[in-house]
Design a protein around this nucleic acid. Structure first.
Lengths: 187, 187
DNA sequence: ACGATATGAATGAATG
DNA sequence: CATTCATTCATATCGT
């Protein structure tokens, strides 16, 4: 999981050139000869440690804008970082955790068809909140995509104009929603 | 935002066979072996260009149902697209622009108590009638739902100067006021 | 050199 | 509108 985590590099501040990762193995050659100090944020070990702590120990999964600001301000002491980096970190971390679980459960659920829904522990706290099998056929919600443009036989007629009350028209037409059988886990 | 923009598969030649089949993507042959998932709209470069033009130059931010219809009709010439795609595009674009600001908030505001008298000289001014025949009728959604307020027909005057965040949203931080919340990250 | 994997970043689609 | 989710893209790094 965690591989590549060294290279602390530039704490903001100038240090022109450097190019960060330049070094790398193989000696020389590497470098992209152009500064271009890495395009993406490279978290330092401390930053990751703190982020993990917030995630696992504090139960923070989707920090609010305020939290993100505070967090990034704190992490900035350990290296360059922006709010978006924190935002993405949590987004990705959560998503991948869920994704991983989904894949794992996916297999097991194939073996155990009936999974009584029951009440899921709706707590936002437990990091293990995603219990149960999600399985969620993610492709089913989009199977109803009309040919919108051309080619699908139906031309541009889209009459979703019908004076909808106040919501998005295109949300009604088809029965999309989440998988009926699969239990959507709370968040 | 500027990356990954290949794979245009609009070809409307109604060619039989596979079509679509997601994935592809340059480089990685990843191959998902099945699931023609990529059902989601993949804007073409032209569509994006036009959308951005409407957003930044025309000042359109929350197009009405009629505008959406016209826009999607226009964009359809450049690739498959549906009304909802346009709707979501504007929603997301606007939301992200705002979010960027919110998370960006960095130091600049903390360091500069009060300065930069009047920036924002440059308004979106455009919108003086959306080019063409689009009438500026405020959408029912805005009026009835959410206290959108401004039903005057003029867009909210935010000052995105010419920056065109077209490239990377949060790449450019700019002054934004935000109270330095002191609350500890909690949940 | 590749291929696999981890992960930062981006964005379409939804939901509240 | 704000938030969240799912996917996908882009890279860096490591294993063989």
């Amino acid at each position: 999981m965690e591989h590549h985590q060294y290279q602390q590099q530039q704490h903001e501040e100038s240090n022109t050139s450097s190019t960060v990762v330049g070094g790398s193995v193989g000696g020389s050659k590497s470098s992209f000869l152009c500064r271009q100090s890495s395009t993406r944020w490279i978290p330092t070990a401390d930053q990751i440690r703190i982020l993990r702590d917030l995630y696992y120990n504090m139960g923070i999964r989707s920090p609010t804008a305020d939290q993100i600001q505070k967090i990034s301000a704190t992490l900035r002491k350990y290296g360059k970082i922006e709010g978006k980096n924190v935002f993405y970190w949590f987004q990705n971390h959560k998503a991948r955790e869920r994704q991983k679980k989904r894949l794992t459960v996916d297999i097991s659920s194939l073996l155990t068809p009936c999974s009584s829904p029951g009440l899921y522990g709706v707590g936002p706290m437990g990091s293990s909140c995603c219990g149960g099998s999600m399985l969620m056929e993610r492709s089913f919600r989009e199977c109803c995509l009309s040919g919108g443009g051309n080619g699908s036989g139906m031309e541009s007629s889209m009459g979703w104009v019908g004076l909808e009350s106040a919501a998005t028209p295109w949300m009604h037409p088809y029965p999309l929603k989440h998988e009926p059988g699969a239990l959507m886990v709370s968040r």
